[in-house]
């Protein structure tokens, strides 16, 4: 597929805010309650960009952060995109997802709500996500399902929680998730600072992969989730390096919009190619395609793959 023949992006991954109520040890963006939000897009700018996405007939948007639901613009952006026919994925920690919000979202084309469940017990979950409540996250998942919305679970394996991976998979099944996403811890943001205490050794990682493969075989065919086809175990490609190489070889045509409106040509957010404060989505798309033709994006990706923060 040649993405340069598309008139606009196929998807946007929009980080609505850098702020988050939690300060997770493994956060890719280093988000937290003390992360400054100055410089982030205003409501008017967000709505203009959302309308621009609709006009470009972008099929799919992923709203994330930080914690997207902490953004005062979250619901209006979601509604503008959704009413314009854009399928939405919401990535949340679930700490503040209540039935009122789920009810509003249920009138929109929601592809999925993705909740992070990095443990099956409060002790483990809170160790990775200080101050967070596992019960609140589980309740959020139940609220999502009660509202008839598709649920996805994400689990980041670390030394703290890998022993609860199987229990977390069972919990996801019980909650009616259609997909369980996992993969190697991505060493970016705060995860770099906490690498020594988080990163699995090779033996633990091999065991984790064996567990995933075994559970995948066991679950396949079981009836759960929204589709009635059983929960999908999603862990390939397993490493960030593999994901980055796969994206470089076959770009997804996704623009990553940062909280301040800058647009990145790489999912990692390092290759800024446009600014939606001054550019339209179509202009940003053309800049993205130009960036792809040059070598600098590949160099950044190569740096990400081989840089000192990542395991070779």
């Amino acid at each position: 597929m040649r993405i340069d023949s598309f008139h606009a992006p196929l998807a946007v991954a929009w980080q609505l805010t850098n702020r988050c109520g939690l300060e997770c040890l493994h956060c890719l963006n280093g988000s937290g309650p003390r992360t400054p939000s100055n410089g982030e897009l205003t409501k008017e700018e967000c709505l203009r960009i959302a309308l621009d996405c609709v006009e470009c007939a972008i099929p799919y948007a992923i709203l994330g952060g930080g914690e997207p639901m902490l953004s005062p613009r979250f619901m209006e952006v979601a509604e503008t995109l959704g009413r314009g026919g854009v399928w939405l994925k919401i990535e949340t920690n679930g700490q503040m997802l209540r039935s009122a919000a789920a009810g509003r979202l249920s009138s929109l084309p929601i592809r999925s709500i993705q909740v992070s469940l990095d443990g099956a017990t409060q002790r483990t979950y809170e160790r990775l996500r200080p101050g967070a409540s596992l019960q609140a996250a589980v309740e959020a998942c139940r609220t999502v399902r009660k509202a008839g919305l598709p649920l996805e679970i994400t689990f980041v394996p670390t030394r703290f929680n890998v022993g609860e991976a199987s229990a977390a998979i069972d919990l996801a099944l019980e909650l009616g998730a259609f997909r369980f996403n996992t993969g190697r811890l991505i060493l970016r943001g705060r995860a770099v600072e906490n690498r020594r205490s988080l990163e699995l050794n090779e033996r633990a990682e091999r065991e984790f992969l064996r567990l995933l493969t075994r559970r995948e075989a066991e679950i396949s065919g079981r009836s759960a989730g929204t589709s009635g086809r059983g929960m999908e175990m999603c862990f390939r490609p397993f490493t960030f390096e593999e994901q980055v190489r796969s994206e470089a070889a076959e770009p997804s045509g996704t623009l990553t919009i940062l909280p301040d409106g800058r647009v990145s040509a790489s999912a990692a957010g390092d290759a800024v190619c446009a600014d939606l404060r001054t550019h339209t989505v179509k202009e940003a798309w053309r800049s993205y395609l130009r960036a792809r033709q040059g070598t600098w994006v590949e160099e950044i990706w190569a740096g990400l793959c081989l840089g000192p923060a990542t395991r070779s």
């Binding site: 196929l10 099929p59 997804s252």
Partner: peptide
């Protein structure tokens, strides 16, 4: 989702992306 393009169109299955 179905989107018209100059070369024809694309069908985007958002679940599997």
């Amino acid at each position: 989702k179905f989107r018209e393009e100059k070369f024809g169109a694309v069908l985007f299955e958002t679940r599997s992306e």
